[in-house]
């Protein structure tokens, strides 16, 4: 089978690999459609020229990544071996532990790059709160992925 360099970055499991390729392709098609739409608006003069092209470029890139990420999370293909209630609970606890560790490392990393703040209040507001927010988003998305995977696995058991 002819494989591209992209296959080196994809999982070995063929169902998972196929799904991720679909998500990438869907996102690329939407991305192209948005670009064509904006070009048409730009030619016809409807597109607001006050919006810098960099902002539009970053937004498109953000959408491209978020689309793939959300499709992956809600497809239930991440946790392929979680079939029992016990496995599910065990994985849930593991997720919590991993995310607490992630939060701890994130705070250390942020402190390392941004430097130590002058007051404890600043430390909490400028460093700890953004870290908690990032870790919380990560934890919630992983939980959703786990839940969808578990539900999908139960249906096909």
């Amino acid at each position: 089978m002819i494989k591209s360099w992209l296959s080196k970055l994809l999982p070995n499991d063929e169902y998972k690999e196929k799904n991720i390729l679909y998500f990438l392709a869907e996102s690329a098609v939407i991305f192209c459609m948005i670009l064509i739409f904006v070009i048409i608006l730009s030619i016809t003069g409807i597109f607001n020229k006050n919006i810098p092209i960099e902002v539009f470029g970053l937004f498109s890139l953000w959408f491209f990544c978020v689309y793939i990420f959300l499709r992956y999370v809600f497809s239930g293909i991440e946790y392929t071996e979680i079939f029992t209630e016990a496995d599910y609970k065990k994985e849930k606890n593991l997720l919590l532990k991993n995310n607490l560790l992630f939060l701890f490392l994130l705070i250390i990393g942020f402190t390392f790059f941004n430097g130590i703040t002058s007051t404890f209040f600043e430390f909490v507001i400028d460093l700890v709160m953004p870290c908690i927010f990032i870790a919380l988003i990560k934890y919630v998305m992983e939980l959703i992925s786990l839940r969808w995977s578990y539900k999908k696995n139960k249906r096909i058991e």
């Binding site: 070995n12 499991d13 998972k16 392929t80 999908k152 696995n153 096909i156």
Partner: peptide, 20 residues
């Protein structure tokens, strides 16, 4: 060399595996 989920999907007729 696939996941248990893939086997489950094949058995349930929800995924058509490759010839390999």
């Amino acid at each position: 060399n696939v996941s248990r989920q893939t086997i489950g999907l094949i058995e349930n007729g929800k995924y058509n595996p490759s010839l390999n």
